[in-house]
């Protein structure tokens, strides 16, 4: 329900944040309409970014008041764009299902019981999504299998491991026919996916060291006590900054008609802020974007 790819709300104009909220609520509504009520729980910031990116080159749908299960009375404005949301909802369902499969594989039988239950609950939705987008479902399976191979061999290459996940994320626009649109979008998503993988690896590093679980940063930098040295942290920050720059350069090549400022805010401000918070050990992936208005300091990652 949450995620890493989020805007800097404090640096967005009021209209910009409203547009973001409408897209998020629109995605939630579309998930419910296409894959049943329980699929609404899969909505997250990362897939909202995917919708914004895909919708930026065409005319997005209008916002209209809709029923919201999270609101007892009254309605919420949400973007109505069934055609635009169709591939995004399918990717959301497929990725969530694969994530559950991954968790089942990683955990012991007892610990994996909740995931096994959810796995069964979302099976029908997954089959429907995989029928509609078979290439993406196959790509996910293929790349996750490659990732497991790298994990089993304790690969020290952060590029090779991040590449498998980044390929999955960039595959979310594989259905777009126009190569002048698809290629820049793939680059934006590839580097966003790479960023996500590295940020998540850094976030989990201490826990993985304690559990003696695989983490590419462990085998690349050999951290002591589950923490990277300041030099390694600077190096990693420069790598993620390069990814942000490359994603931004690709974004500039899109003939954006809508959500331009919002997308720039997410890529140029949101991603670096999230990485600063992760570095400072203060990032909370499950923190809601809607209620809290605290901002993240670019230098220390602290909230103020």
């Amino acid at each position: 329900m949450f995620g890493y790819v989020r805007p800097r709300r404090d640096l967005l104009e009021q209209g910009g944040f409203d547009a973001y909220r409408h897209a998020y609520c629109g995605l939630c509504r579309a998930l419910g309409k296409m894959y049943g009520f329980r699929a609404r729980f899969l909505v997250n910031y990362d897939m909202t970014f995917l919708y914004l990116l895909r919708a930026s080159v065409r005319c997005p749908g209008e916002a209209a008041p809709c029923w919201c299960p999270a609101r007892v009375c009254g309605r919420k404005s949400c973007t109505l764009d069934s055609q635009g949301f169709a591939p995004v909802t399918a990717c959301t369902v497929i990725l969530s299902y694969e994530k559950l499969r991954d968790n089942i594989r990683d955990e012991s039988f007892l610990r994996s019981l909740p995931y096994r239950l959810l796995f069964r609950l979302f099976r029908r939705a997954y089959r429907k999504a995989a029928r509609a987008y078979p290439d993406f479902a196959a790509l996910c399976e293929e790349q996750l299998s490659a990732l497991h191979g790298l994990e089993e061999n304790a690969s020290p290459s952060i590029d090779a491991t991040a590449d498998t996940f980044a390929r999955i994320v960039s595959g979310c626009v594989g259905d777009i026919q126009d190569s002048n649109l698809r290629r820049p979008m793939e680059q934006v998503l590839y580097h966003t996916g790479r960023f996500l993988y590295l940020a998540d690896a850094l976030d989990d590093l201490k826990e993985d060291c304690e559990k003696d679980a695989y983490n590419p940063l462990r085998y690349r930098f050999f951290p002591s006590d589950g923490a990277l040295s300041s030099e390694d942290l600077t190096y990693l920050t420069e790598l993620t900054d390069s990814s942000v720059n490359l994603a931004g350069a690709a974004l500039s090549l899109l003939p954006v008609r809508a959500y331009g400022k919002l997308l720039e805010n997410i890529v140029f401000l949101g991603l670096p802020s999230v990485f600063c918070a992760v570095k400072a050990g203060k990032f909370q992936a499950k923190e809601s974007l809607w209620q809290k208005k605290k901002t993240i300091n670019d230098h220390t990652g602290e909230k103020r």
Binding site: T237, E238, L239, D241, S242, N245, L246, G248, A249, S252, E264, N265, F268, L269, P272, D298, H299
Partner: peptide, 19 residues
Amino acid sequence: RSVQGGYTPYRQTNYQRSD
């Protein structure tokens, strides 16, 4: 320099970091 972050591609001035 292009991979060290010393050389950054186009970024609008509004999106430069505060540091």
